[in-house]
Structure formats: structure tokens, C-alpha cells
Amino acid sequence: MRLAQKPASSPGGLLRRPLLDYLRGAMFDASLLGFFINPYHITRRRLHNAIKLLSSSAQGTLLDVGCGSKPYETLFPNVSAYIGCDLEISGHNHHRSRIDYFYDGKSLPFANGSYDWVVSFETFEHIFNLDQVLNEIQRVLKPGGHLLVTVPFCWGEHEVPHDFARYSSFGLVFLLEGHGFEIIQHQRTGSYLLTLTQLFQNYVFHYLLPRKGRLNFLIAPLIFLPMNIVVLLLDLILPKGPELYLNNVILCRKAPEVQA
């Protein structure tokens, strides 16, 4: 087991941290600011809301596998401990990460039945040996413990070359049930129209806007705000088209021990 070392911050970084943390938060939560400036708002809002709906019942000890910066930790106010675990070398640097323990990608460094909940957000697509990791998640969960995962279905390659798979809703159910998990709730986020719009916004952000961050910050509201307003209105009246969507959000449970 290896504890992660927290990176040191410069005085200038400390002064900028409140603003930077707020802006980074807007990239993950359902805030009004994200509606104006975030090119990923369609995806992030639906992920945030789906996780929030399922997280309120979480209690006890919780392990976040692939935790990164722990963007959804605040949605779990009732847990007694929120522990983050991640790879030391992955598709992104850990400058902003809040990792408590590193693991080797094969074995989680915890005893059997250590956690009441395990969560993993947007991580399974980066795990080449998912069967092995699911076995480990089963092992560290207490009997009757819960697993909450979100996995993208329609999204571009990212954190390359550590991007290995896209899973359909049926594929994920097959994998989870095959490792002894009982599906409690399964949601597919985003409609056909919202998914197409999100992909187009990604294209605009990465290939048409200037690459300078400050200039992007000024231009983004002029592009994404009217686009978000129009597509959300259209989504209310047009057919949903459930076969194309953004993310799978699945809550499942490890079988409790059978009393003799």
C-alpha cells in the first residue's frame, strides 16, 4: 500500500486557488456558471444530477476507484470516510488530484470487506483488465455493500493512450451481473439530440476556438449559451431516441452473506 504525496503549492497558487477551484467545479457540477461557459455542460449536468440522486443513501466507508480530483465527493455528505485510490501513472498528471492511495492497477491495497460503498466515475473505459478490477471491487466491498459507477457510451478518445473501451448498457449489465452484482438502478443520460449537440460542442471547443484559455473564457458564453438554450427547448418536444446517449449510471449491490 502506498500513500499518495500531496503536491506543494506556491504562494501565488494559494492566492489563485479559490477562483480556480470555483471554475474547475463549474466543469463538473450543475451550476449556472457551467451553463454559460462549460463546453461539457450537457454531459456534466446530467452526470451530476444522476449521481446526486443515488448518493444520498450512501453511508459508512466509501472508496473512490480512479478518484482523480474527487469531483463528486461533496455529493456524499453522509459517509464517514471518503477514500480515493488511483494509478500513479495514468493518462493524466496528478497536479490537481486528491489521491489517498496509489494502486498497481491489479490489486486494491485494502483488506477484504473494507468498504460499505465503492464508486467509480468515468474510469472503467480506462481499465484494460476490467474483469480483474471488478473482482477486486467485489473483494473489498462488505456483503450487501453498494457499487455506483458511471461509464461513457458516446465520447471521443481521451487520456490517450489509456482509453481502451466503450460499453453499451447491455455490456455493462452483463459484466456486473457476471461478477455477482445485483443491478438496483440503471440510467442512460442524455437524449439522441443532446448527445449530438454535446459532440458538436466538443468539436467547436477543441478545433474552432482559440487555444488560449482566457480568450476561450470570453468567447465561450457567446457560443455555448445560445446553443444550450435552443437544444434544451428542442429536447422537450422532439423524440428522445434512447439508443444514442452519453453515459451509463448504474447502482448495484454485492450479495449479502447467506446465514446458515
Results as ranks from 00 to 15, higher is better:
Leu238Asn: 02
Ala30Gln: 02
His158Trp: 10
Arg188Thr: 03
Gly213Phe: 15
Glu182Val: 09
Ser31Phe: 09
Val230Gly: 06
Ser57Thr: 13
Pro18Lys: 10
Asp235Asn: 14
Asn248Ala: 12
Leu208Trp: 10
Ala111Asn: 07
Val133Gly: 03
Leu222Met: 13
Gly156Ser: 13
Ser9Asp: 09
Arg16Glu: 09
Arg44Ala: 09
Pro71Asn: 00
Pro161Trp: 12
Lys70Val: 01
Gly105Arg: 04
Asp100Thr: 07
His206Leu: 12
Pro71Arg: 02
Asp104His: 14
His126Ala: 07
Leu215Ala: 06
Leu75Val: 07
Arg17Glu: 14
Ser107Lys: 15
Met1Phe: 15
Asn202Ile: 15
Arg188Asn: 08
Phe102Ser: 08
Asp21Gly: 14
Gly13Asp: 12
His126Leu: 07
Glu88Pro: 06
Pro161Arg: 15
Lys6Ala: 15
Asn49Tyr: 02
Phe76Leu: 05
Ser114Gln: 09
Leu225Tyr: 06
Gln259Tyr: 10
Val149Leu: 04
Phe76Lys: 02
Pro221Asn: 10
Pro11Val: 11
Ala220Gln: 06
Pro152Ser: 06
Gly13Asn: 07
Leu236Phe: 08
Phe164Thr: 03
Leu236Val: 03
Leu54Glu: 01
Cys252Pro: 00
Trp155Ser: 01
Lys106Gln: 15
Ile223Thr: 05
Gly60Lys: 03
Gly180Arg: 02
Tyr82Gly: 02
Phe174Cys: 04
Ile219His: 09
Arg24Val: 04
Leu175Gly: 00
Val231Ser: 00
Ala26Thr: 13
Glu257Asp: 08
Asn202Arg: 08
Arg253Trp: 02
Leu218Ala: 10
Phe124Asp: 01
